[in-house]
Structures are given as structure tokens and as C-alpha cells.
């Protein structure tokens, strides 16, 4: 990709013995919305801190917007926006005062630009609302506004939707897509498997390693070893015991009141049911299951 906005080569960060980020490689193109998925402690935030030049890589390098992320970090930070997990907003200031304050940090004093940012994140009319009184969803919009006030071409969002309800989460994603349509490149971290579905491409992190990066559909197609079926059978435990012995069954897990199984691709429902018959099992129903990014993650972790 010649127009890569982010280029990461063998990027590594150690803290003493601990390897927080372990030789990762990826590229992000202009206008892409890329997700960075992984549990707490998998190295997501450390990666972003290196991309912003806040941490020196122990090995490898990153080029962001054409600049070396660490050696030219000022140029990077002047052109990139960052919304951190625990964003700092002044509770005792109004929405407008917060935005004006952070604009000043970037040398933005133009009132029309600040008004434009308010408009963009849907906070117009809330200028003089005290930040303290905002709901979690609105605070999150303000934090996004602060990250956008200098009109960056690249936006880093570190777990921006942690703890907000699904309605606010969707509204937030609408904003993200709107930004992407206007040419802003977005790298967003999350530990919500289902949220990663929103992204055009998803990188999967575990223990500092980037295990895969692709579109959600390709990840499901290429990494999950087979098809997903939901098996409703009594007694459940008996099913858990006998299902793994059925020819073609690759893995089985409990899912509340039924069993979820991954079987060899193309295996017929009849064959699955036939395999279960004659094992003292009352099979009530077998239905097609949706593969998820969690299946992908678990397949990769094995």
C-alpha cells in the first residue's frame, strides 16, 4: 500500500522481561476504519502509545502519516487525534470551555472551528452545559470532539465505547463512519468482540502478538475451521460427552441451554443428527449458528 497512513514494521516494546508488544506488522490505508481487538493487557494501548511517539519502541519502527512515530512525534501528534480510555475532561467547565481549552493546546483559537467541531459531534446547543451533568454517552462525544478539534487526518480511539450503552455506542459509530467518509483514517481498540464487527478490518491481539488482521468476514471464513451448529439436546451433559465422538465434530462448548459445535465444513445436518442418534440422547433441534469473532479469537488462541 503506497498510500498507507500507518506502517508498522516489527514494532516491539519490552518493559523489563515483559514483552508488551512483540514484533507486530501491519498497514492502514487512508480512510480505513480498522479495529484492534484484544483483551485487557494484550498490548493494544502500548501499540497506540508507540504510534503516537509517547513510548520508544524497543525494536522495529512505525511510520505514521509519513513521519517516524518516535523521532518525529511532534509532527505526528500535530496531525493525529487521540481519544484515550480514561479521557480527561474538566467537570467544572462547560462543554464549550473544555473544547476551547483543548483547542488552545493545539493552538486553535478560531471560534468557527470550535463551533464546527461541536456541530460535528452533535453537541451544538449544549455549549454551556456543565460537563459534570453530561451522561456517559454525551461525555464520550465531548471527548471525541476534543480529539477532533485540530481536524486531524488520523484518529486513534482507545476503547472509546467502554461502559456506554448500546444505543450510545451505535450513535458513536455513526459518527465514526461519517468521519471516515470525510477521509479521516481511524484506528480503534476494543475488547468487545461484537463491536469489532463494525470495523472494515480487524486486527486480533493476544499476549503482545498480532495474530491476524483482515475483514471480519474473511477472518471467519479463513480461521474458523468449519461450520457452526447449535444443538438442542437432552440431557445436556450427555450431549457434551458424546458430541465430540461424532465423526466430523471439531469442537463443542456449552451455551446455556444448548450446545454450540464447530464441525467440518460442509457436514450435513442429517449426518450430525444421525451421529447423535443411538446415544441415548433426545435431540430436539439442530440449527445453523452464526460464526462470531469470538470463535475466531478462540481458534487463533489454540
Amino acid at each position: 500500500m503506497s498510500d498507507a497512513v500507518i506502517q508498522v514494521k516489527n514494532l516491539t516494546r519490552r518493559f523489563g522481561e515483559f514483552v508488551a508488544v512483540d514484533h507486530i506488522n501491519f498497514e492502514v490505508g487512508a480512510g480505513e476504519v480498522v479495529g484492534y481487538l484484544g483483551p485487557n493487557g494484550s498490548g493494544k494501548t502500548t501499540t497506540i502509545r508507540m504510534l503516537l511517539g509517547l513510548l520508544e519502541p524497543s525494536d522495529g519502527n512505525a511510520t505514521v502519516l509519513g513521519f517516524d512515530a518516535f523521532k518525529q512525534s511532534e509532527q505526528v501528534r500535530a496531525r493525529a487525534g487521540y481519544m484515550s480510555q480514561k479521557f480527561a475532561i474538566y467537570d467544572d467547565l462547560t462543554v464549550l470551555e473544555n473544547l476551547t481549552f483543548y483547542g488552545g493546546v493545539y493552538g486553535i483559537t478560531d471560534k468557527t472551528r470550535i463551533a464546527r467541531t461541536l456541530e460535528l459531534v452533535g453537541l451544538r446547543g449544549h455549549d454551556s452545559t456543565l460537563t459534570r451533568t453530561l451522561s456517559a454517552g454525551w461525555r464520550q462525544r465531548l471527548a471525541l470532539g476534543i480529539a477532533l478539534v485540530h481536524e486531524p487526518k488520523l484518529l486513534f480511539l482507545d476503547e472509546p465505547t467502554s461502559g456506554v450503552d448500546p444505543t450510545a455506542r451505535r450513535a458513536f459509530w455513526d459518527l465514526i463512519y461519517q468521519l471516515a467518509e470525510n477521509g479521516v483514517t481511524i484506528l480503534v481498540t476494543t475488547h468487545y468482540m461484537d463491536e469489532a464487527e463494525y470495523c472494515e478490518r480487524v486486527g486480533i491481539m493476544r499476549d503482545g502478538k498480532l495474530l491476524a488482521m483482515d475483514t471480519p468476514s474473511n477472518l471467519k471464513k479463513n480461521i474458523i475451521a468449519g461450520d457452526v451448529w447449535e444443538v438442542y439436546a437432552d440431557p445436556l451433559e450427555k450431549g457434551l460427552e458424546v458430541l465430540p465422538d461424532v465423526d466430523g465434530v471439531l469442537s463443542v462448548s456449552l451455551a446455556g441451554d444448548h450446545l454450540r459445535t464447530i464441525v467440518e465444513r460442509g457436514m450435513k445436518k442429517d449426518d450430525l443428527v444421525k451421529g447423535l442418534k443411538g446415544k441415548n440422547l433426545n435431540v430436539r433441534d439442530v440449527v445453523v449458528g452464526e460464526p462470531t469473532l469470538e470463535d475466531v479469537f478462540i481458534s487463533l488462541a489454540r
Binding site: 483483551p39 451433559e237 456449552l254 488462541a301
Partner: peptide, 21 residues
């Protein structure tokens, strides 16, 4: 919350197993 999906899966298996057994 925030837990590795593999651990999450294990944890759920224990809870479901506990209840169903």
C-alpha cells in the same frame, strides 16, 4: 469484563457446568 475470550469461555463453561450438574 475485559477478560481474554479463551478465559471467558472457560469461565462460562464452569458456570454452566455447575448449574447443569
Amino acid at each position: 469484563t475485559g477478560v481474554d475470550p479463551v478465559t471467558r469461555q472457560d469461565f462460562w463453561q464452569l458456570v454452566i457446568k455447575l448449574v447443569s450438574q
